[in-house]
């Protein structure tokens, strides 16, 4: 229990540091938002009122603490572009990105493990070698390029979906999922290829271990050795990798949302950066970074839980 408490402590500290760093980064940007927003309407009184509304008073540490207190209670500040609370600007978008990411992550899971096991099982066969080469290429294809190819093939040629015509949840659950399927697949393909590759090398590494020889000496075939002995060992690093890749997938969706015109926080982030709407950008950056930190923490705990050597000692 002590280690979990310690890890949770580190988690909170890292979250604090990450938020501080992100906050600081957006503070060094030159220019005064108040002056910019008010433009020709500028009067000292109005400026003071607006400054108060935007939470821009006081020195940097005071602003950070005020922002942090707001952040943890769901008050993310006011968007410069919309002059609305950031929470309202993001409304619904977070769920879209979450759905996209989880769907994509499930696809990675679905493809990578059977593929990795098959590649390791038939590693000397012609077919597996060809598949390994194709896998190598898939690892190198950026998700947004796959997205563009999908838009062309499934959207324009086969007309399985209408590119740019996102179906909201509220309208149709399955329609929404159907639209998100292609961007999710675009993000998943290179990630699944990498995961499969990791699993293959993990299995190959385990095959060199002494316990594998013992397993053979009992009369196991190669496939039985892989299935009953090696796989559970080889999956340990893969589980960690998969847990951490959810954060990568969210980051990947920033770009893929753009390709498929999916109204998620990724598109909002890009738009807010282009429009220099920093409260929105900061909020999204911190949410994603916090997710990364949290997933690393979760990966750590999951490994602890499934590895009896750590769990029981």
């Amino acid at each position: 229990m002590g280690t979990i408490a310690k890890k949770t402590g580190t988690l909170l500290l890292t979250l604090l540091l990450v938020s501080a760093m992100a906050f600081l980064a957006f503070q060094v940007i030159p220019g005064d938002p108040v002056t910019k927003i008010l433009g020709t309407d500028y009067t000292p009184e109005r400026a003071a009122t607006l400054r108060h509304e935007l939470g821009l008073e006081g020195d940097i540490s005071a602003r950070y603490l005020r922002w942090l207190a707001g952040f943890v209670t769901g008050d993310f500040g006011i968007s410069y572009s919309y002059m609305k609370p950031v929470g309202q600007v993001m409304e619904g978008k977070l769920a879209v990105t979450a759905a996209l990411s989880v769907l994509s992550w499930l696809l990675v899971l679905l493809f990578s493990i059977p593929l990795g096991v098959a590649l390791a099982r038939y590693h000397k066969g012609v077919f597996a070698r060809a598949a390994a080469t194709v896998n190598q290429v898939f690892m190198a294809v950026p998700p947004f390029f796959i997205g563009i190819l999908f838009t062309y093939l499934f959207g324009l040629v086969l007309k399985w979906f209408v590119p740019g015509k996102f179906v909201p949840f509220s309208q149709s659950f399955w329609g929404c999922l159907g639209y998100l399927f292609f961007p999710a697949l675009a993000i998943a393909i290179p990630k699944a290829a990498k995961t499969a590759r990791l699993l293959v090398s993990s299995i190959m590494g385990e095959m060199q271990k002494d316990y594998v020889r013992t397993a053979y000496s009992r009369g196991n075939s190669r496939w039985m050795v892989i299935r009953t002995h090696v796989l559970r060992n080889a999956l340990l690093p893969v589980v960690t990798y998969l847990a951490m890749s959810l954060a990568d997938i969210v980051a990947g969706s920033i770009i893929v949302e753009q390709v498929f015109v999916v109204p998620g926080i990724g598109r909002l982030l890009v738009a807010s950066i282009a429009a220099r709407d920093f409260p929105v950008a900061l909020t999204i950056v911190v949410i994603i970074a916090a997710l990364v930190v949290f997933m690393n923490y979760a990966a750590d705990l999951v490994t602890q839980f499934i590895d009896p050597r750590v769990r029981l000692s």
């Binding site: 890292t14 540091l17 990450v18 760093m21 980064a25 980051a251 950008a281 950056v285 994603i288 970074a289």
Partner: peptide, 17 residues
Amino acid sequence: TLTAFPSILLALVLIAI
């Protein structure tokens, strides 16, 4: 702390700045 930011995100922040 920096490793908590996916590289594309960090690059976007720096571009924002």
